[in-house]
Every structure is written in structure tokens, then in C-alpha cells.
Amino acid sequence: MMYSGAVEVGGPADVHELADLMISKVAVGPMNNNAYLLRCRATDEQLLIDAAAEPHTLLTLIGDSGIASVVTTHQHADHWGALREVVDATGARTYAGREDAEGIPVPTDVLVDDGDVIRVGRVELTARHLVGHTPGSIALVYDDPHGHAHVFTGDCLFPGGVGNTHDDPKAFASLIDDVETKIFGELADETWVYPGHGNDTTLGTERPHLAEWRERGW
């Protein structure tokens, strides 16, 4: 079956099969968070993005192979609710944005800055620091050498707009500037977007609406 990115809490994972990378997306409750398991097809090494909730669901998805690392996209509690259980069960190395690490109650092994590379097997993910939803939010970009880019945006970019900046004009300006410059400004329309909640999108779908988002202020 073709990958759609449409998943539901309690339902099965949806798997996006790329030439070098397998991406499994699952939804977990109670806030309908997305978690993404990445597996390098050459080495079988695995990385989890956002151990959000339901540790049993995530550990079942991970399977007996375990994970080498887990990346937390930002410090909000609904994105690390199962982190302690997952780390305890797998011994995974933890990554988070430098400015958000203190807000995550599980110690961060590797503090991530803009442009840092995080590896899963032979696959490289580039971190982009996007300020506004939180001070240290990061997105992860996989520039597929066999096709278009893929970007895991946490709560910084969704279908229909950027993440919540809680009616703070400065935070909104910062976030939309970073998203425009570091995501839309550097990646092509075909880039697939995997957000922290809800359905996926592409940059081409969202790009025509950037001015509208700026005008409305959210």
C-alpha cells in the first residue's frame, strides 16, 4: 500500500519505504502525537523521533532490534512522556535542542545546535533550530540522495500553518522567519513534511499560503 501518513491512536503504523531509509509513523495518546521510527536499510540501526506517550506502543514498534538514539523535537511534555521508559528499556542515546534540554526531565546526552548532523546508520539527518514554539525546537531534515527531501518538523510546521506561539507576536515572527528561511528557503516543493501531530503535507502544498499566515499572525 502507498504511504499516506494518516494514522490514528490505537491504529497501526504507516510505513514510508525509501531507498535507504524506512520511516514508520504511529499516533499515540492522549494528545494524538506522532512518533517516527527511522531505520537505516543498510545497517538496520534505528532512531526514534519523539517518545511522546504509550511506551508499550513505541517499544512494540521498535521491536527486538532496539534503537541507538531518540531525538526529542522540543521540551513540551506531550513529546517526551514515554522517554524515560523507552530509554530505560533500550539504552538509547538522547538528543534535544540545546535551549530546550533543561525543560526535558530525562538527561540529554547530546545537545543539538543548528546544522548539526545526527546519524542513524549510514543516513544523515540535519538539525534546524526553529525558535518560537519553544526556545530550542529542532526539525530534522533528511536529504534523500535518491529523491526529494523529508523533514520532521515537531510542532513548528503543520498543514495550514506554523506551530502555536501563544499570541506572542515576537515568538510568531521568530518562528515564521525561521521556518521560511531554513525550511521553505532551502528545500524544494516536493519535500515531505512529517509534523508532530496530525497528517503529513508537502512544502509545495503550504508554500502559497506563507503570506496569508504572516498576515493573520498565527
Rank of each mutant, 00 (worst) to 15 (best):
D143L: 08
V70F: 03
D109S: 09
N32M: 13
V28M: 03
D155Q: 11
G97Q: 08
W213R: 10
E8A: 13
F184K: 01
V7K: 10
V9M: 03
V131Y: 00
T94I: 05
A89W: 03
W213S: 01
I49S: 03
A52W: 06
H197R: 15
G121Q: 10
H129D: 13
P107A: 03
A127V: 11
G204M: 09
A188W: 02
V131D: 00
A77K: 13
G198W: 13
S174P: 03
V28P: 02
R207Q: 10
T94K: 01
M31Y: 14
T90R: 06
F152Q: 08
N33A: 12
I176H: 00
L130I: 15
I23D: 01
I183N: 01
H197L: 11
L48T: 02
D144C: 06
G147W: 05
G66Q: 12
R98P: 02
W192I: 15
E206P: 03
Y36L: 14
Y36Q: 05
T72Y: 07
G81M: 05
A173Q: 10
R41V: 09
A96G: 10
L157R: 01
D20F: 08
S24H: 03
R41E: 08
Y142V: 08
G91F: 03
M2D: 11
D44H: 15
V110G: 01
L21P: 07
S137I: 09
L48S: 04
W192S: 13
I67C: 08
V9A: 09
N199P: 10
R119F: 02
T108M: 10
D189W: 11
V106Q: 04
T43A: 12
P208F: 08
P55C: 00
R93G: 01
M22R: 15
T43K: 14
P12W: 11
D116H: 14
L47E: 02
M2P: 15
E85F: 03
A89P: 07
W80Q: 07
Q46M: 13
G217T: 04
H74Y: 11
A53Y: 10
G10R: 05
D143A: 15
L37K: 06
V26M: 03
G204R: 07
A127S: 14
V179R: 00
N164V: 12
E85I: 00
H79W: 08
P195W: 12
S137P: 10
P30H: 04
F152T: 06
F184L: 00
V106I: 11
H146P: 01
E215Q: 11
L175H: 05
D100Q: 09
D88E: 12
V70P: 00
I118A: 01
G5R: 03
S69A: 14
L83H: 04
P135Q: 12
G29Q: 06
G121P: 05
H16V: 06
A96T: 10
L59N: 07
V70Q: 01
R119W: 04
N199T: 14
G97F: 07
